[in-house]
Design a protein around this nucleic acid. Structure first.
Ligand SMILES: [Mn+2]
Ligand SMILES: [Mn+2]
Ligand SMILES: [Zn+2]
Ligand SMILES: [Zn+2]
Lengths: 150, 150
DNA sequence: TACCTAGACAGGAATGATTCCTACATAGCA
DNA sequence: TGCTATGTAGGAATCATTCCTGTCTAGGTA
């Protein structure tokens, strides 16, 4: 989804986030993709237009925008952090081979609950469902594979 | 759950995993707790009885046992890796403040499925549900807290 | 029971994502 | 327009994890 600069600015101001060219570029890159990029991915994307931007600014900005609720971290395994500009409630499909992440919007999954007995005293705020399997392209190269871990 | 040494040995042999004192100690420590310890936690636990064991052996053993299906990695956020000796299907409650992880056994959650349309061509192997919130001890110190990111 | 050898162990070095530090720049406000 | 709290760039530091290398040993063989 492409976002107008003034819409980005409006979202930042609504959350009292200072508007800078770097932040707008990082946020625009994130919102325009559905690939759940890493900080390094975003660094490579934005340095095409902003060659002097440092990795530190990318990390710092991602932290600021996360605290402001403008993005979320989506982690799979304990691989490097992935970021998601879609902050509406949704779930993910994760490829166990190539780590591709795709979105799943499903209101039934959104409504899942847990019994008080199972909640073990937790004050539950939310939940996330993660499906794992092989994505289309990874299935292609697996005609014979065994149904074990790989 | 306490495990007899011969049961540990039997499980290892069933999976063609060589039996060593180090591996038995690491596996026993993991199976006897429900705390989902980190590699460093396990290193501290086992070096009480095996002072010369190296961290390398802990990491290497955890890899071997994971590939053998005797344990699983359970990651929350992109914090350090956590390990789980319970390899039956189950789900987790995660404290957003202290990272405590507790088990949720619930057959309804086990049965969740995703429509073909939503699966986006993935060959889905399984899923995991992660509830997040505040654990009992973290609720205690939060009488007034605001319902934001915490 | 006494070898053999593939694989395991210990210790230390290397890696790499992320965080920390600091001097300079600038957004937002009066 | 000028002030100042905050952001940025660049580099150093951190630290969980992996890699490397020289012993050591589990488990099979004769
Ligand atoms: Mn997503
Ligand atoms: Mn568990
Ligand atoms: Zn894939
Ligand atoms: Zn807690």
């Amino acid at each position: 989804m492409t976002l107008h600069p003034q819409e980005i600015e409006a979202r930042f101001r609504r959350q009292a986030v200072r508007v800078t060219r770097q932040r707008a570029a990082i946020y625009a890159a994130l919102v325009e993709t559905t690939s759940h990029p890493t900080a390094e991915d975003l660094y490579r994307m934005v340095t095409r237009q902003h060659p002097t931007m440092s990795r530190n600014t990318v990390y710092y900005t991602l932290g600021v925008l996360r605290k402001a609720g403008l993005l979320q971290e989506v982690n799979v395994g304990h691989e490097v952090a992935r970021f998601d500009g879609n902050v509406t409630m949704h779930h993910h499909l994760v490829c166990v081979q190539c780590s591709r992440i795709e979105d799943v919007m499903d209101q039934e999954l959104d409504r899942l609950e847990i019994s008080a007995r199972q909640a073990r005293g937790f004050h539950v705020l939310g939940h996330r469902v993660e499906f794992h399997g092989y994505c289309v392209s990874c299935r292609a190269g697996r005609r014979e594979a065994s149904p074990s871990q790989g």
